[in-house]
């Protein structure tokens, strides 16, 4: 049976699934990368995703254009990010706790809105598969990478965009400085709090898209708590990726590919207990994390509110 796992068709299937599964993780984790690079640990990603998922679904459900739905999800995500900024940056609340508060807020509000505005699980037609011309005709590669809906491509596109913004722009430089040494940034006239607000808002917007990628991209339904803690995995992936976009990509892909692999293992009937199989992605992620994590990458001011010393 094990040899079935290593047929070309199965391997292509695993890669195809893994590439797609990584989408919401990528959006959410890249957004969180911005926040963490500037020194804010936002544990509320899951709540922001739920709000984004609901908003996008609601717009699409009411006949709205799908791009309008994405825009609305981004808007709501940004607002959630702003809220996190008010609580954790301006009021300097403990970041871990305010993040959990934001998560509960998003979970509760999205459920409430769902019950009052929609009421039962419904489906919409989300983004259809968009086979990229020429590219999708490539043998093997074409199916693995270029046979998905448009949000999947967008998620991968965000990787170089994130890396570019962080490394090649003045704002990115400010983000990195603020996350490592806010005093130094402040002494040069960089507003620490403004930078952190902006990164939280960017992170919220991306978490909103992450939610939309579920509700109008991959699943095309909205269900209460449909993210099921996915946002927390995204936070872990930022650590996994050593706060770099490429690292986050690696982490998201590893996690998703192993998840796809374990699904295939089960579907092919390879005799591994399902309880063990479903643990695989988590176990493997932790193992890699402990083997590779380099402390020097961690923003030194992560989780520390900034107050000018007097």
């Amino acid at each position: 049976m094990l040899n079935e796992l290593f047929t070309l068709a199965t391997l292509i299937g695993i890669l195809h699934s893994g590439v797609r599964l990584a989408t919401p993780y990528l959006f959410a984790a890249l957004g969180e990368t911005f926040a963490q690079r500037s020194g804010v640990l936002n544990l509320g990603v899951d709540g922001m995703m739920l709000m984004g998922a609901f908003t996008a679904f609601y717009v699409a459900f009411n006949g709205g254009n799908l791009w309008l739905a994405v825009a609305a999800a981004i808007g709501v995500g940004c607002l959630m990010g702003l809220l996190m900024g008010v609580v954790s940056v301006t009021m300097q609340a403990e970041q871990g706790i305010s993040g959990i508060g934001l998560y509960l807020f998003g979970l509760g509000l999205s459920s409430l809105l769902f019950k009052t505005l929609i009421g039962s699980v419904e489906s919409v037609s989300g983004f259809p598969k968009l086979a990229l011309p020429l590219l999708s005709d490539l043998p093997i590669i074409g199916y693995i990478f270029f046979d998905h809906n448009v949000l999947v491509y967008l998620a991968y596109l965000m990787v170089p965009v994130t890396a570019f913004v962080l490394n090649r722009t003045t704002f990115g430089l400010s983000i990195r400085a603020v996350g490592h040494n806010p005093e130094a940034a402040d002494s040069l006239g960089v507003s620490v709090n403004r930078v952190r607000y902006v990164t939280l808002i960017i992170g919220g917007g991306l978490a909103g898209v992450a939610g939309a990628s579920l509700s109008i991209g991959l699943l095309n339904v909205f269900q209460e708590n449909m993210t099921n803690g996915l946002g927390f995995i995204a936070v872990a992936l930022v650590y996994f990726g050593s706060w770099r976009a490429v690292g986050v990509l690696g982490g998201a892909l590893l996690f998703s590919l192993v998840n796809a692999l374990q699904l295939w293992v089960q579907v092919l009937g390879i005799p591994i207990p399902s309880d063990i199989a479903v643990m695989l992605p988590y176990v493997l992620t932790i193992v890699v994390l402990t083997l590779t994590v380099r402390q020097i990458q961690q923003p030194a001011a992560l989780t520390k509110p900034y107050e000018r010393g007097e």
Binding site: L219, N228, N259, L263, A277
Partner: peptide, 17 residues
């Protein structure tokens, strides 16, 4: 073919399954 997601609410993983 039977697969389990290890979860009651992991909608995304169930879809991928």
């Amino acid at each position: 073919n039977v697969s389990f997601t290890g979860n009651f609410g992991d909608t995304a993983l169930a879809a991928e399954a």
